[in-house]
Simulated scan of single mutants.
Amino acid sequence: MTNKLKQRENYPILVIYSTDNSFGFGYRKNNNSESDQLFIKKFDNDLCNNLINDLIKFISKENLQKVNKLSVSVGPANFNASRLIVVLARTISQQINCPLDSFSSFEIMAKRIASKNNIFINKKSFWIYKKLKRKGIIAGKYEICHNEKNTSDLVIRETVLPKVIKELDSKELFFEAIYDAKEDLKELLDLSNKNLLNSNVDSWKTVLPLYPISPIN
C-alpha cells in the first residue's frame, strides 16, 4: 500500500441523503465503519433552513473543513429534498474545495435488496422500481458484478439509470424501492469511501438532482 493511499484512508467523508419523507447526514472519520456517525430527521415545514441548521449541529466547522470527500444521493426521492441536498452538497464542495460524487437512491439500496432476497446466488441482474402517483413507474437496472460467500463483498453496478417506463417486462426480475435511511446512509458511506480509495472523484459541477419527471407528478 502506497503512502498516498495510507494517507487517504484517514481522510474524513461526509454524505448527505434523502428519502420520500426524511433526510440525513453521515460522517466517517477514517476508513473504518466503527467511526461512522449518523443523523436522520423527518421532513418539516421549513426543510431549507432546518437542513442547514441540522448540518451545523451534526458536524463542527473544524471537522467540516477537514472533509476530503463528499457524496450525495440524487434521487429518485422527494423532489424538493433531492434538489435541496444537492444544492447544499455542491455549495460545500465548492467552498471547501472538496471532490463531490453522487449515487441514485436505487443504486444505494440495490445491495440491501439483493442480499435480502438472496438473488446473488443465481441471478445476475434485476430492476428496482417506484410507482408514480399517476401512470407509469420509475425504474433502474442493476447487475451483480462480483461476490464471495460473504454478502458484504457483494458488488453491484447500475446499468440503467432510473428513468420513467410504462411497465416492466414480466420476464425480468424486479423489486419495489424501499427506503431505509439508516442502512442506506451506511451504504452511501461505503460507496463514497470506495470511490475515494480508488481515486474515483468528480467535480461538484457534474452533480445534479435525478428526478425523471416534473415535481407535479
Rank of each mutant, 00 (worst) to 15 (best):
K6P: 04
D190Q: 04
A114Q: 09
L197E: 15
E172W: 01
E187R: 01
Q7Y: 11
P162A: 14
I59L: 13
N117W: 05
K41G: 04
K130A: 10
V86C: 14
D180H: 05
A114C: 15
D36Y: 10
N217G: 02
L64D: 11
N32M: 12
K42P: 12
E167I: 12
C48F: 07
I16E: 01
P162K: 11
N3C: 06
K194F: 08
Y142S: 02
E143A: 07
V67R: 08
D20V: 08
E187Y: 00
I121A: 07
F103Y: 14
M1F: 03
F175C: 03
I178K: 13
E143G: 04
K141L: 09
I52Q: 10
Q94W: 13
I13D: 10
C145K: 12
R8V: 04
D44R: 07
N147G: 11
E183G: 10
L5K: 10
I128E: 00
T159S: 15
L88V: 05
I16M: 07
K186S: 01
N97W: 00
V164K: 11
F103W: 09
S105L: 14
V74N: 04
V201N: 15
T151F: 09
K131I: 06
Q65M: 07
R134P: 00
L196D: 09
L168F: 00
V72H: 01
K130T: 08
A77N: 05
N147W: 10
S71K: 06
Y211S: 13
L5H: 07
L38M: 13
G75R: 04
N80T: 13
G140R: 01
D169P: 05
P162L: 12
S82H: 00
L161K: 15
L47D: 02
N195M: 08
K149H: 13
N45K: 13
L208R: 06
Y17T: 06
L189N: 00
K135A: 09
F43D: 04
S214V: 13
R8A: 07
N150R: 11
K194N: 12
K116R: 09
E9W: 03
R90Y: 06
A177C: 12
P76A: 02
P215H: 04
D190N: 07
P99W: 05
F58Y: 08
E34C: 00
V87I: 15
A114T: 11
W204K: 12
D184M: 01
K182C: 11
K69C: 13
T2I: 10
K111V: 03
L64N: 12
K135N: 11
K57W: 02
V86A: 08
K163G: 05
K111A: 01
P209S: 03
P215W: 05
P215A: 02
L185N: 01
E143F: 05
V74L: 01
N30E: 14
D46Y: 06
A177N: 13
K6H: 02
L55G: 01
S102W: 04
F43P: 05
N193L: 15
C98F: 06
L55C: 04
